[in-house]
């Protein structure tokens, strides 16, 4: 399970970084989103991977911490998702404004000279 998660994070982060370095604003925002997914999975993984362990204390199971998954990273992921969502939306607006004002979707607001 660990290797699958690690590969998923690696693939997402790698594609995200590649897209982040591309010159088109749409590619940049896709890159940021992919990186965001990778980071969220990473935070989740930092709570150690467990199957069948709920994060919330269940009266029937008792209060032994070893029966439960770490709830904190899950809470952190939720916060990170919300913040990431908001900033992506904001970045989209700026991206559209840039497209409208400069007439191009290049991140510098003008096309680089083609050789």
């Amino acid at each position: 399970m660990e290797i699958v998660l690690a590969l998923a994070i690696g693939t997402l982060a790698g594609s995200g970084i590649y897209l982040l370095l591309r010159p088109r604003t749409f590619q940049v925002i896709m890159g940021l989103s992919l990186l965001g997914y990778a980071v969220n999975l990473f935070i989740f993984g930092m709570g150690r991977l467990r199957t069948g362990a709920p994060p919330v204390i269940d009266a029937a199971r008792g209060s032994d911490p070893s029966l439960y998954a770490d709830p904190l990273p899950q809470a952190l992921v939720l916060t990170a998702i919300v913040i990431g969502f908001a900033t992506t939306a904001l970045f989209l607006v700026v991206l559209l404004a840039s497209r409208g004002l400069s007439g191009t979707d290049h991140v510098d607001g003008r096309e680089s000279e083609k050789p």
Partner: peptide
């Protein structure tokens, strides 16, 4: 808008690194 775009992109990327650091 042009300067803001760069500013926002850099800081969003930095925020993601912050999250990785905090999680680690």
């Amino acid at each position: 808008v042009k300067a803001g775009l760069h500013y926002i992109a850099v800081n969003l990327a930095a925020s993601l690194v912050f999250l990785v650091a905090a999680a680690l």
